[in-house]
Write a protein that binds this DNA or RNA. Structure first.
Lengths: 137, 137
DNA sequence: CTTGACCCCGTAGTTGCTACAGGGTGCATA
DNA sequence: TATGCACCCTGTAGCAACTACGGGGTCAAG
């Protein structure tokens, strides 16, 4: 299949596919006589793996390690577990921080009763961190 | 005060302060005879506003608008309210998505019982989106 | 034979910084 | 007086993970 089809099949931007190839995340496919990239099912599966991992928030470098494991199925899977667990911790940490942020924003907005900027509680709250109830980043 | 003092006073990297000046977020301060930047309290307050807003996740462009409002206190504060509200919505959306992600990751990891990569549930789950219970991004 | 959809490559832009390299300034100490 | 050191200056390049050109080639339909 050509790059446009692969793009549609995986919901990946064409430029992104070429980018993944350039950074060595996807193997360079064969070419047609017209020098068009020609992909097979293995390529599609690998790209799906990459996209799914990216959707789950893994970095490119993490995905490199995961692909490496996936390519060497006799290796211990401890590392995959470790990568995923560490990532889970990071996601949880991010959720916690964003929740504090949300509460702080809601509090700031809640105090605004309209009017002119001189009396704006949003602006006032942003001017002075000491008004914050929760320690955010 | 010199840039190093401002940096310590606001917990902002020196390079970041110069960066903010370069992109016009902070006004260029006066200079000493030795061409060192010389800041006053107004600069410190403005930088604190910027840092606080960044900590709350506002983009530079949003901060530009907020600063603009803050500089023109007779303007209606609707826009500040609008910016903050939109941002709150985005934060909430992000929290929702990350929570789905966390659940998905926890589910994937929970199925892993160690062993070799060929049997690794983490790798398997990443290979195939159809195993997902929640629609994530 | 031309129109349009598709493909190629290379490079530059995005966001919000951070990190040099290569130099100048200012003060204390040997 | 020299010299070491902390601090400051500018300008440019790097980071992640794409995205968006610009300027061209290919190919089937009308």
């Amino acid at each position: 299949m050509k790059i446009g089809e692969l793009s549609r099949a995986t919901g990946t931007n064409i430029e992104t596919i070429r980018y993944y190839e350039r950074i060595g995340l996807l193997p360079a496919p064969g070419r047609t006589a017209a020098n068009y990239r020609s992909y097979g099912d293995a390529h599609r599966a690998r790209l799906a793996f990459v996209r799914h991992s990216r959707d789950l928030g893994f970095t490119i470098e993490e995905i490199r390690s995961l692909l490496d494991l996936s390519d060497n199925p006799t290796r211990e899977c401890d590392e995959a577990d470790r990568i995923a667990t560490r990532h889970l911790e990071q996601v949880q940490e991010k959720i916690t921080q964003l929740s504090l942020l949300r509460d702080e924003l809601a509090r700031i907005i809640g105090r605004c009763r309209g009017g002119i900027a001189a009396d704006c509680r949003v602006i006032e709250a942003l001017s002075d961190h000491s008004h914050c109830e929760n320690a955010h980043v």
